[in-house]
Design a binder for these strands. Structure first.
Lengths: 331, 331
DNA sequence: TTGACATATGTCAACGATGACATTGAATCA
DNA sequence: TGATTCAATGTCATCGTTGACATATGTCAA
């Protein structure tokens, strides 16, 4: 900026005035400044500006478990567009689903003085240490899973009700033994909630709960193996419920390879080509873009000074019937 | 920091020394400072630090067209992990495939004084305006598509060779009329390259080129419609080549709904459930994680002072044979 | 003609941190 | 013992920018 000022023969302050439309500047001076700016390719230093005005960085920090996962990718996309409409920038880090990385990312973001945080908590993380920031008024929104040890806004899917609806759907087609393939670790919020929905549905229908029907697979491969284990049981399930998108994919692959078109399947979270699978996959669909947008709007309203109590937003799920969930129980 | 200093009864400089392990500090002082830091929940202000040391922001800016697209999501993931291993933060923006948004994002990143830029160029963008930064030594790497009007590093897939291999594969199964479903706009680098590969293969086999067999679909819906148009031709193709992942999905859906198991299909870019489709989808697979990592390494070596000539890295593709590409030409 | 007021610009300090250099006191050495 | 060295801390200026306030020039009504 000093360079520009020298080029024009004015003070930095005048250049600043031109660039920020702040205070009166002679038209001719303005033009000469703009010309010098272009000539020198000058770009204001946002860091210095933010520091001076004492403002926080015009950025919001986002922590997600995995960028490659389309669910979180879509969520991030929803957040980004909403947030950029307000001139804010998105800073992203992925925690690889570990509490340590999550905390270190958050520390980095705080050191950068981001204006707000949006966090998908990892299993086992504890957010008590964020109390100071909460009290200082920093907007913090938890996504997909609520905070632990901290009262804060959160936006989550209707996991329990959604899973329950999915299981009830299967029960409606005569299934009495329904396998559950869930996330690892079993303490993960979404896993627990969906599992509760599973049990709610069983109980509602007066069906017994059989621990042997509960399997775990934290990625597609593990879910595939878990599916095979379920099918190999003495009294195998006639239907499966896959509690997340990777589990669904693993189950689909396992059933397809085994040629088992007789086993019903409902997945939690939609998949891109679900409709052309054989049989087409019935799912309890989440709305990742909506989750992202709701979270972004919550953050923006907090930035606008909304100091009301912490909210938990439930984004409803939707059962999409395509075929795999409507296979009747034969045995 | 001043607060911490006052709490302990020393100067800010001493606190700075403790936190940066810079210069001698009495053990007792160090401990009291650390205690005060914890007590006050102090976190150093990275913006101020960067400004003072005149360093650029320890962040790299990434511009991708769409966060929800798993291809770019995976690329971003590869970059992020490589980059964070070096203590750098990733700032992401999506351009929605428009040159204007791309340029405004880059401007934001430059104003933040990022240490490097990684950009997936949008169709129609021109990067001449980045010359100043290039000359100033800012590492800029273009991803998936090369820069326009600027000599700079780039990392791209082996589009032309990959497409050629895919088409040759189809020709090998007797196909002589092969439909091409490409991106919009047709000027997009990846579209052009893959189209060239298509023509190379035809020419190599002495097959005629028929403009009527070239269709365009910029998303899944459009690709589905494009597929239907191709199938409705007087002399329809016996095989299809879908030039990107969304085009593949559209083609798969169209063929499945029409019950056309006789039309061969090869897609460019792999899909998650390709193997369980009916028939399983043969693809020319890209390696998005590798693309991201190669780009990140290139950036890091530039940050380490590598001033050699601009490089273009080609990440090879791989033909994955699954079934849909091996359907013989019947007509 | 003289304030009063608006316009155009400048001066200075400060945001939070650290580099360069100065100061203090104690230990070490010729 | 006085000079030398080093550890421990302080002082001051500065990074690029902008708020608060000051100054200079011109305009206009009384």
């Amino acid at each position: 900026m000093t360079d520009v000022a020298r080029e024009v023969g004015v003070t930095a302050k005048t250049v600043s005035r031109v660039l920020n439309d702040d205070g009166p500047v002679a038209i001719e001076t303005r033009e000469r400044v703009m010309a010098a700016v272009r000539k020198l390719g000058y770009q204001p230093n946002l860091m210095a500006r933010n520091m001076r005005v004492g403002a926080r960085d015009a950025a919001i920090g986002l922590v997600i478990p995995e960028m490659g996962n389309p669910f979180f990718g879509t969520v991030a996309g929803g957040i980004e567009s909403a947030v950029r409409a307000r001139g804010l920038t998105l800073i992203v880090g992925s925690s690889s689903e570990t509490a340590e990385l999550e905390q270190s990312l958050i520390a980095t973001f705080l050191a950068r003085r981001v204006s707000a945080l949006i966090v998908v908590p990892s299993a086992g993380s504890d957010h008590r240490y964020l109390r100071t920031e909460r009290i200082a008024g920093l907007p913090i929104v938890f996504l997909d899973r609520p905070a632990v040890g901290l009262t804060a806004d959160s936006v989550v899917s209707g996991n329990r009700a959604g899973a329950q609806a999915g299981i009830e759907h299967l029960i409606g087609y005569g299934h009495r033994r329904i396998g559950f393939i869930g996330d690892l670790p079993a303490t993960l919020y979404t896993r627990r909630e969906r599992f509760q929905g599973y049990r709610d549905a069983l109980e509602g229908a007066g069906l017994p709960f059989d621990r042997a029907l509960v399997e775990t697979g934290h990625d597609q491969e593990a879910a595939r193996a878990a599916t095979l284990r379920l099918l190999a049981l003495d009294r195998p399930p006639t239907a499966l419920f896959a509690a997340n998108n990777l589990a669904s994919m693993g189950a689909v692959v396992a059933l397809a390879r085994a040629g088992r078109r007789d086993v019903a399947l409902v997945g939690f979270d939609d998949l891109p080509l679900a409709e052309v699978l054989d049989p087409p996959l019935t799912v309890v669909a989440q709305d990742p873009a909506a989750i992202g947008e709701v979270a972004a709007e919550l953050v923006l309203s907090r930035l606008d000074g909304d100091r009301s109590r912490a909210r938990r937003s439930l984004v409803p799920t939707r059962l999409i019937v395509r075929g795999s969930g409507e296979l009747p129980a034969l045995s």
